[in-house]
Amino acid sequence: MKYTLLAFMSLFVTTIVAAQIDAPQPSPSAMVKQTVGLTEVTLEYSRPAMRDRDIFGNLVPFDKMWRTGANANSTITFSDDVQFAGTDVKAGSYAVFTKPGKKDWKIMLYNDTSNWGTPRNWDDSKVVVTATVPVNKLKNAQESFTMAINELTMDSAHLQIMWENTMVAIPFTVPTETKTQASIDKVMAGPGANDYYQAASFYLDAGKDLEKAHDWITKATEMNPKAFWMFRKKSLIEAKMGNTTAAITTAKQSLEKAKAAGNDDYVKMNMDSLKEWGVKM
């Protein structure tokens, strides 16, 4: 009886320890996704509250490195290369560190986002951009720490950081014009070799109109005459159409191009097909 009671108590205690209590976090996490022009910008950060505390100059000391929020790194992610405060920044994710001051803040993008708070060992080589921006006073107090992407235009926006009665804004620009022009040029120029190749490949695999597939793959090979894989696809389409003579001619072209490119896989595939089609190798 005593053994049974001890076993039951042990199971009861284990169950209590294993259980997890769901409770709200004092600094809840937030994610903001904003499209600026044709570029996706994502903010991930935690949001501490004022709770009747003096923030800047007290809870957050002036002129000292700050994690810019709470908990893990606050991060900003750009889907394209951008200009952040006038400095070129590659597409990717960056931790946002700051040094708040009375009149201005220093903003730093850091290419290591794995830290909890500020890095234990700061590495200047990981700083991709440093900017100094003026402090703006808010008319109404901001209870919860907030980061936002505002002041949107076709090719620019501001990263805004707000808390208590303080707001700082860092401008950045995105490559909207470049991306749009590239899209216009591509569409106006018509399909490219890879577009024709993919369309022909789909028609072959799906057993659709082989005449159309052959027309497309021919255009692809004309636009990219060194593409041994395109010539390989053309030979397979011709063989599927029952035109073995054309398939052999095209496979030999693919074979020579694959040899020139040093691609042994395509050399073997072409040789296997040529043997299958009656060519003595």
Rank of each mutant, 00 (worst) to 15 (best):
D88L: 12
Q160S: 14
A131D: 02
Y94S: 10
N121L: 04
V127T: 11
V129W: 09
T176S: 02
G86K: 04
K90M: 00
A148L: 08
Q160A: 11
V89M: 00
M167I: 15
V128Q: 03
K179N: 15
V135N: 09
E143L: 09
L109W: 08
V129F: 12
L159P: 02
D112Q: 01
M147L: 14
E177S: 15
T113H: 10
K179I: 14
P100Y: 08
P119F: 01
D112C: 12
T132F: 07
W122M: 11
A169Y: 08
T180F: 11
A157G: 06
R120P: 08
F172W: 02
W105A: 07
Q142G: 06
N121H: 13
F97I: 11
S93G: 07
M162C: 08
D123G: 15
V133Y: 01
K179Q: 12
Q160R: 06
W163L: 02
M162S: 09
Y94G: 09
E164Q: 09
F145E: 05
D104Q: 14
R120M: 13
N111S: 14
D123N: 15
N150C: 14
T132G: 06
V128Y: 04
S114E: 10
G117V: 03
E164Y: 03
A141V: 14
A157Y: 02
I170N: 00
F97A: 07
N115D: 13
V174S: 05
V127Y: 08
V133H: 01
D155E: 14
A148M: 00
T132D: 15
S93M: 11
T98G: 08
R120D: 15
V133N: 03
E164I: 10
W122N: 03
N136R: 13
P134H: 08
N111L: 12
R120S: 15
D124E: 13
G92I: 08
T98D: 04
N165I: 10
D112R: 04
S125C: 14
R120E: 15
T153D: 03
A141Y: 11
A157P: 03
M108H: 04
N165P: 04
T180K: 05
V168K: 02
A169D: 11
V89P: 05
G117M: 05
G101A: 01
D112P: 08
T146M: 12
N165H: 10
M154L: 14
D112V: 11
P171A: 07
D123L: 13
P175R: 04
T166I: 08
F97Y: 14
E177V: 08
V128I: 05
A131S: 02
T130R: 10
I170K: 01
M154N: 15
N150A: 15
G117F: 05
T166M: 10
K106L: 14
K126F: 12
E151F: 11
T173P: 07
E143S: 12
A95C: 07
K102I: 12
T153H: 05
K103V: 06
L138I: 04
R120L: 13
A157R: 00
A131R: 01
K99E: 15
A85N: 09
K99W: 12
